[in-house]
Computed example of a mutant assay.
Amino acid sequence: MKRSLAAAAVAMLLAVSGCTTGAADPPIAAPSSAAAPSATPPFSTSPSSAPPPPPKDCLTETLDALDLPERVGQLLMIGAAVNAPSGLGDTVRRYHLGGVFLRGRSTHAAAQLKSGIAALQKQAPMPMLLAVDQEGGSVQTLKGPDFPRLPSAQRLGSGPAATLRDTTGTSARRLKGIGVNLNLAPVADTVPTSIGTGNPPIGAFRREFGSDPAKVAAAIRTVVPASQDAGVLTTLKHFPGLGRVRVNTDVSRGATDTVATVDDPYLSPFKAGIESGSAAVMISSARYPKIDPDAIAAFSKPIITGLLREKIGFDGLVISDDLGAARAVTSVSPAQRAVRFVAAGGDMVLTIVAADAAPMAGALIARAESDQSFRARVDEAARHVLEAKKRAGILPCR
């Protein structure tokens, strides 16, 4: 009897505690609304509780506000006569140009040049990169009373670094004073002594800082900060180097460097300029068969994307050499010159021929509309242009 009572007591305890002996677990009852509240309230997926997205930065806001034709326009730098730049105003407005290259030579005073540049900038939907070739020696766009003649790079490169720095800084301040914000300089090409003046594009005009790439690299490290600290962005040219060619790409076809490789010591001045923070790099229109046997540098993905972007690590603005009047590219239509350059990884197409704006813009738009990967490349290129404008202090926020 005592054993029966004990067994009954155990059974009652098991029933109360919810334990079973082999039977399926009973369903869990829903919690009572009268239950004590949890110490930590459950996470809510209500949109109102999600944190707000971070605000967009100025550059992203500006890019997002641009439609496709406006983005494509940022990829174009068109030539305008340096003494009458406002004549390009209609093209600037119609194609939303990202930049203008002041071509030719001028002996005008600074005030006159400043007035013309300001008038041109007023025509632009967005402030533009305004570029000149103010290297020194034989290549000097501005030679008026307010722009003293500059020594050649070869002469400056053979002198003290302090002179090179001071000369560069003074020249850049004069450019900034008239509204120029980008110099298509310095030349980072190395011309070996075995070729010297036999190199038509560079050596013949003493545009190189020296015949030793280490010495050229040292000069580039001086020039880049001297110019950019004075308010004018620099452009390292002509990647991956024109110092060993025997043909000038401006006036002839067939310029070829049969020596250059991806590990070429002559790349060191470009690397030095990139490490020094140069805003831009210009791509040559010569051939480099050991790097890419199939295309000139301006149309070469292995050179622009593979070597410059990925191997060397440059993430700034990539500009073409002239793709308008240069003899090296005349076998390709202007429209396809622009498309091939951008597809290879380039950002800003430079042409001194104003009439090229229409076919180049049209071809870039058409390709972007039919090819999503190319559209992404256009967006990336436009961002690089806007980043350069931000560095120049001219990027507006909408």
Rank of each mutant, 00 (worst) to 15 (best):
P27W: 03
A65W: 02
L68A: 02
T60M: 06
Q74A: 01
R103V: 14
P31D: 04
P51E: 05
T21S: 10
A35I: 06
V100T: 13
L88P: 08
A118M: 01
P37V: 15
S49Q: 11
N83D: 15
A50C: 05
I117L: 03
H108A: 14
T60E: 07
A23Y: 00
Q112Y: 08
C58G: 07
T45C: 08
H96N: 14
A24M: 09
L13C: 13
A110H: 07
P41C: 07
A84L: 10
G79M: 04
A35S: 14
F43D: 13
S115G: 05
A39N: 02
S48R: 13
S86G: 09
D25Q: 14
I28A: 10
A80V: 05
S48P: 01
G73I: 07
R105H: 12
P69W: 07
P53V: 05
I117K: 04
P26K: 14
P85N: 09
A110C: 09
T40L: 13
S86A: 15
T60H: 07
L76H: 06
P37S: 12
V16F: 03
P52H: 12
K56E: 06
S86I: 11
Q74L: 03
A50T: 14
L14I: 14
S106F: 07
M77T: 02
D67Y: 04
P47W: 02
A29L: 12
D25M: 13
T62M: 12
G116K: 02
A11Q: 03
G73A: 05
A23S: 08
S46A: 14
T60C: 00
M77F: 01
H108Y: 09
I28C: 01
Y95R: 03
S46L: 11
R94C: 06
L66N: 00
T107Q: 11
L66S: 00
L97H: 11
G89F: 04
A36E: 13
D57M: 13
S17R: 07
I117N: 03
R93Y: 04
S86H: 08
L76F: 07
N83S: 14
A34D: 15
A50M: 14
G22V: 09
S38W: 13
R103S: 12
L120P: 08
A34Y: 12
L59I: 15
A11H: 01
P42H: 06
S38P: 13
G104Y: 04
L102D: 05
L102N: 08
H96M: 01
V72N: 01
C19V: 13
E61Y: 03
L88H: 07
A24E: 09
A29S: 11
D64Y: 10
A35C: 07
I28Y: 00
C58A: 14
S49P: 00
L68N: 00
G22M: 05
G87F: 02
R94N: 10
L88R: 08
A15C: 12
L88W: 04
T62P: 01
S33L: 14
D25I: 12
A118L: 03
S44P: 07
T60Y: 00
G116V: 03
P54Y: 06
V92Y: 04
S106E: 09
A118G: 07
A30T: 05
T20N: 09
T62E: 00
A39C: 01
S115Y: 00
L68Y: 07
A24H: 08
M77V: 00
R94T: 15
A81H: 06
I78V: 15
A65F: 02
P31V: 09
D57Q: 15
G104T: 10
T21L: 14
A118K: 10
P85G: 13
F43A: 15
T40E: 13
R93W: 05
E70S: 11
